[in-house]
């Protein structure tokens, strides 16, 4: 009796996928996997404006995934602001650009098991005399910039008590606000903060004095398609096991935020 019930549950659960056909079959059938990336994400999925070449851990991982699936790889530009729509509107099969697992996103998307975890960091200008340390941020008169759609927006909105939050439409916007002095700091994560330090001469990193709000990063896909999800998870576990993931992490100097199993 119990066996029959279990079978029933199983049939029910795989039912819709079978009915619609898994994304996996489609990917195999079309011979192409579409991967959403945010091309400004330094170290993750960054398109060098001078060469237009993509690089980053998730670019490497996307290529590895395509190889694993035996299909062509198609990158689709996206951003955190557009992420949910791009996935759910089926503009890509999977989003691979270190997507922070937030409550809002979990509601709409299905995440792989996280492979990176980053806290929030602030960037200010070197000559800013107001912000000396993390504790100077949430003070009256301080303007904190965040980019719309990033995980930082809701977090900072929730966390800031005294400082003013400034939400910019673009990520470049938040940098301009700080550089011009309209805002004192902008909030970002570890990979992006590294880009700022490496590519500008005015940026200064303000790290949280203690753990502030670590966010696990993973890949996101549509909800429901268990076979696709299982296939992606298998790829991930293989990558973890055979060192592909670790090699990619090391190549892009992300060891400090790697999730240690």
């Amino acid at each position: 009796m119990s066996r029959i019930f279990a079978l029933l549950i199983l049939m029910l659960s795989v039912g819709p996928a079978l009915a619609e056909g898994s994304r996996l079959e489609r990917v195999i059938a079309t011979g192409e996997v579409r991967v959403c990336i945010w091309p400004d994400y330094y170290g993750i999925s960054y398109r060098n404006p001078k060469t237009q070449q993509l690089s980053g851990i998730d670019v490497d991982m996307a290529e590895a995934l395509a190889r694993d699936l035996g299909v062509r790889l198609q990158f689709v530009d996206s951003s955190f602001a557009r992420l949910i729509d791009d996935i759910n509107d089926n503009r890509c099969d999977i989003a691979m650009f270190a997507i922070g697992i937030t409550a809002a996103r979990v509601d709409k998307l299905r995440f792989t098991r996280p492979h990176l975890i980053s806290d929030i960091y602030a960037i200010t200008s070197k000559s800013n005399r107001r912000i000396k340390s993390w504790d100077d941020i949430d003070k009256p008169g301080v303007v904190v910039a965040v980019a719309k759609g990033t995980l930082h927006e809701p977090i900072m909105r929730e966390k800031l008590r005294q400082a003013t939050l400034l939400v910019t439409a673009t990520t470049q916007g938040r940098e301009q606000e700080v550089e011009s002095g309209r805002a004192d700091v902008f909030m970002t994560d570890f990979p992006f903060s590294r880009r700022m330090l490496e590519t500008t001469d005015w940026a200064r990193l303000v790290a949280p004095t203690s753990t502030f709000h670590p966010t696990p990063y993973a890949y996101a896909m549509q909800q429901g398609d268990d076979r696709w999800y299982a296939r992606i998870e298998r790829f991930m576990s293989d990558a973890k096991r055979n060192g592909t993931l670790l090699a990619a992490i090391r190549r892009h100097k992300l060891d400090p935020i790697a999730v240690s199993d």
């Binding site: 200008s125 070197k126 002095g181």
Partner: peptide, 12 residues
């Protein structure tokens, strides 16, 4: 004009 902008430049 953001005075810091110039200060950053000079300091560097």
């Amino acid at each position: 004009i953001n005075a810091d902008y110039f200060l950053n430049f000079y300091s560097n």
